[in-house]
């Protein structure tokens, strides 16, 4: 598996990376990405997403394992990889005391660009990322959203074949996030770019990624298209919130009553929340409500939903995504 396989835009085999104090950031991570795809690396804080991106973009060196990006081995030909890729880091990387335009110009120079070609490319990117008015201001004065857009522009100056985006929308308001999503979709669509993006937003992965890998603790838990991953969980999720937590006898009665409803499977009770699966969630709701009423259990709310990536995550990582990612808001937000 360690031979140079150029049929993929990105191929990583068994990447292992440990940091001092025995922190295993990557624990045998393998992924392949087809050219022209948007590939999502989805995982909670500390899953190893950034570490994977650092290795694939030649910034960091793995302890073991190999990776081929844009046809070149990252360890043996890092410069060839660097020429072919663009990388947008999770944290801001623009020079804060230089202007947006100067940042873009230097970036182009480092890829050997210059003259009118570079000037035109910069104008084009400023336009595209709505930075024309701010172009000649110091980056330090930019808003979080503007900085994020500049970062993406920096990664695109030299028209890379593969673009790495490490949490491109973290810290953006909903409007800016939607705009960034459109931009990313367009890049992959019109320009045939391969995009590897990391995210800990399930919604983002679901919406943008053609394929994705769910990673946790430095390992890939599952790969596939969002639809495939969700399809593995057959049926819809039905959640029933109860008015009060139940004592043991009442809990057994409630579970038995719900399980007896035709079409309902896998009943579970967690505090005051009953969960079940059903082939057709909406269809079983009336029956479920009647059964619970018959058992003397008071219901506060019912939801029936198509399986989400959250459910997929729960299945593979053994815990809810939101629990694994409890400090989502504090980490990686705008600082």
């Amino acid at each position: 598996m360690t031979t140079t396989d150029t049929s993929y835009a990105v191929a990583a085999y068994d990447l292992v990376k440990t940091y001092p104090k025995n922190v295993t950031a990557l624990d045998g991570l393998s992924v392949t990405v087809d050219a022209g795809q948007i590939f999502g690396l989805l995982g909670p804080n500390g899953a190893g997403k950034t570490t994977a991106v650092k290795i694939l973009t030649t910034l960091a060196r793995p302890d073991s394992g190999t990776a081929v990006v844009a046809g070149h081995d990252v360890a043996r030909h890092p410069r060839r990889v660097r020429t072919a890729i663009g990388a947008v880091a999770q944290r801001s990387s623009a020079d804060p005391v230089a202007t947006g335009r100067d940042n873009l110009a230097l970036q182009g120079r480092l890829y050997g660009m210059g003259g009118t070609a570079l000037r035109r490319r910069i104008d084009e990117l400023l336009e595209r990322f709505a930075l024309v008015d701010a172009a000649d201001r110091r980056v330090r004065t930019y808003s979080g959203g503007m900085q994020r857009r500049l970062e993406v522009a920096l990664g695109l100056v030299h028209r890379p074949a593969v673009l790495f985006l490490d949490e491109p929308t973290t810290g953006l308001d909903p409007e800016a996030r939607a705009a960034m999503w459109d931009e990313i979709t367009q890049l992959a669509g019109d320009e045939g770019l391969t995009i590897v993006l990391t995210t800990h937003y399930l919604e983002e992965a679901d919406r943008l990624a053609d394929r994705l890998a769910i990673i946790d603790a430095g390992r890939v838990m599952a790969t596939g298209t969002p639809a495939e991953l969700k399809g593995e969980l057959y049926g819809d999720a039905v959640h029933i919130d109860l008015r009060t937590a139940l004592d043991e006898a009442a809990a057994t009665a409630a579970r038995t009553a719900l399980a007896a409803v035709p079409g309902v499977r896998e009943v579970a009770l967690d505090g005051s929340r009953l969960s079940a699966r059903a082939d057709d969630g909406a269809a079983v709701v009336p029956g479920a409500l009647a059964a619970l009423e018959g058992a003397g259990v008071a219901v506060a709310a019912v939801t029936a939903a198509r399986p989400s990536l959250d459910d997929v995550y729960l299945r593979y990582a053994g815990r809810r995504f939101a629990d694994a990612d409890a400090d989502l808001v504090t980490a990686g937000g705008e600082s």
């Binding site: 973009t57 030649t58 910034l59 410069r79 660097r82 020429t83 890729i85 990388a87 880091a89 944290r91 801001s92 990387s93 623009a94 020079d95 804060p96 970036q107 480092l110 890829y111 050997g112 920096l154």
Partner: peptide
Amino acid sequence: SQGTLNRFLVTPV
């Protein structure tokens, strides 16, 4: 710390 070095290191510079 401001990330500029990491950005330069993934360019061919």
